[in-house]
Design a protein around this nucleic acid. Structure first.
Lengths: 355, 355
DNA sequence: ATGCCGCATGTAATCGATTACATTTTCATG
DNA sequence: CATGAAAATGTAATCGATTACATGCGGCAT
């Protein structure tokens, strides 16, 4: 019976240890593991036994160095604590992990110099590809991801003037649909709770809001466009702003650029005695899990969060393996308006008749 | 003036390219980057210029291979979409990233074979340490993390009978405090909405609940212990179960093993006409952001989520660098009872007097 | 018997860094 | 000016895998 040369091995076994124990060369061990069929049965058995006995695992750094791959992708996400992104991440993780990829998460919430560190990481060959959920190509003062020729795919937030694949939903169209729903219910005084002006999603959703009003022949009122920044707190503040208005000047409905703000707003105006949806109909955007938990449940545009992630991941895998992207460069996934309890026709009050 | 040997370089520059351009040896380049002070100023300038001109970045796989480190840690998290863990992750990320570590997230939600893949990854030397948020040492059929001698730290969920550092809160004590608060308000009929029985957190929180009752001389009633599993849905179902009871047999207060269930329950019983907290006081556990957003805001045990993550990460760094853990093996962080709007003394009804 | 083919395996180059050790240069001191 | 220590740099081994190429061997056709 064969014996290990060193019975009590402190450090992990290497391929040489396995080769020695099995009485073959390192090349044979490597081949047995990579392409078992090219090795004769008898040696295969010996090698596999030796692998088992030594508890051998190929050293990934060595392999990476040799084959110039890492089987890791970096995901840049604006805020990992945001439930929307958490669900997109799930989709990414599902797809990537069955393909054997690990994922490094670059959480951009926090000090901005972290972003640069991640870019450097990728440029140093620590990742085979990058998934951007953050609306911009992540930057470092002295290195550029695009020059590094790393496969890139963006998702969720569209990045204009780039030519890598992007996976998004039709933000303009669905925002128009959301506001259209309010108009169909009979609302004519519809406020918009916006995101940060520089954000592309904000711009698109605002555009959809304006389009819907225009189509219905309703004049947009700048006073009904409330500033926000996608946070719950912004929703609370917008709620206060609404309450500060003369009741008769208040809109009968509101479209929020995302769910968190919508929920913050609802909570605030409800606490002040307004009935939702009777006194104010509210539509959100995103379809986070909580939109279905809150009171009342929130009518909102439900984004296919897992699907966005999964599709982007699949596209990136295509890009990394074949070098060429799939058929379409810009992929649009369907998002749907979920009708729930926060919308209803307006109360008949003279102050709210069509202008 | 020195010129690059190959002006249009397709692939990334290597240390040899830099050395050639600067007219020095590779050792000097490496030293210049690692310990600039050991190199004479003049060469340092030449080398750094060459680095800049070539856009050189050390290849991480090569370095990892040579120094047997990866500067990456793996974090095993039960469910990345759970907001509680998302915040713990933030704390981990903050601490780890300033120390220069990247993090690979092992999301255990999903197919169980993924867990094994991650274990293999670590055993293959892809990570320098592992952070467990999942209440058990992750396993693979043929490899054991503990045998691999990888630095391990657990956080959030205590893992009994292990001797690596663990960072948690006092679940028993804080649960007792939560229930004690209800008792002080005058409640005597207090239900408990439990987590999955096999979960250690569930066991500890149940223990705290029972202790508080015992101390107050209240007999525990098995009928008031509702089954749950930490999900929103379980809260909804528990709410239905509560509604199915004769009004007079209903508890006047409830302690839920986590916030999500508490919120699901509140939503359900509120929709059926019960007033919170007037008809039912509710205390949750965890202190997720949403507990402060919902209607009414939830009285709950607030865990120091970021701190749990940050402390565990710091402990792991100590373990990875010095090889020895900090002073204490089991670290307890303080968690506090946040008094909000979901608790109040019970209505005076004969059926609810002390038994 | 000879030569050739193809299969199984072995030998050694290679990936790109770090670093122990060797060598050269610098410079203070007797 | 010689000498030796200290400082700066160079040479080459090394980390642990993959893989191109070399080698050996058995069988088959001539």
């Amino acid at each position: 019976m064969a014996k290990r040369t060193r019975v009590t091995r402190q450090k992990a076994a290497t391929i040489a240890d396995v080769a020695r124990l099995a009485g073959v060369s390192v090349a044979t061990v490597s081949r047995t593991l990579a392409r078992p069929e090219v090795v004769i049965e008898e040696t295969r058995i010996r090698v596999l036994a030796a692998v088992r006995d030594t508890g051998y695992m190929p050293n990934i750094s060595a392999r990476n160095l040799r084959v110039r791959k890492t089987m890791v992708v970096l995901v840049a996400v604006p805020d990992i604590a945001n439930p929307f992104f958490a669900e997109v991440l799930q989709g990414i993780d599902d797809t990537l992990s069955v393909a054997g990829y690990g994922l490094i998460i670059a959480n951009l919430a926090g000090p901005p110099e972290k972003e640069a560190r991640y870019v450097d990481l990728v440029c140093a060959g620590q990742a085979d590809g990058v998934l951007l959920l953050c609306g911009h190509v992540i930057r470092s003062p002295d290195r550029d991801l695009r020059e590094a020729r790393v496969p890139l795919v963006a998702a969720c937030e569209y990045i204009p003037r780039e030519n890598f694949p992007q996976v998004t939903i039709d933000n303009v169209g669905t925002a128009r649909e959301a506001v259209g729903h309010l108009i169909e219910l009979g609302h004519a005084s519809i406020a918009y709770l916006s995101g940060p002006k520089s954000n592309i999603l904000e711009q698109q959703r605002l555009e959809g809001y304006l389009q819907a009003l225009r189509e219905a022949g309703i004049a947009a009122d700048a006073g009904l466009i409330l500033p926000g920044d996608f946070t719950f707190r912004a929703g609370v503040e917008a709620g206060r702003a609404l309450l500060a208005l003369e009741p008769v000047a208040r809109p009968t409905a509101l479209f929020a650029a995302n769910d968190e703000m919508a929920i913050g707003l609802i909570k605030t105006v409800h606490a002040a005695g307004l009935q939702i949806p009777d006194d104010l109909s509210v539509v959100g955007f995103d379809g986070i899990a909580y939109a279905d938990y809150c009171e009342p449940t929130l009518t909102t545009i439900v984004q296919p969060r897992r699907d966005l992630g999964a599709t982007a991941a699949a596209e990136l895998i295509a890009l990394m393996t074949t070098g060429k992207a799939g058929l379409r460069k810009d992929i649009n996934l369907p998002a749907t308006l979920a009708l729930r309890d926060s919308t209803r026709p307006p109360r008949k009050r003279p102050g709210h008749l069509r202008s």
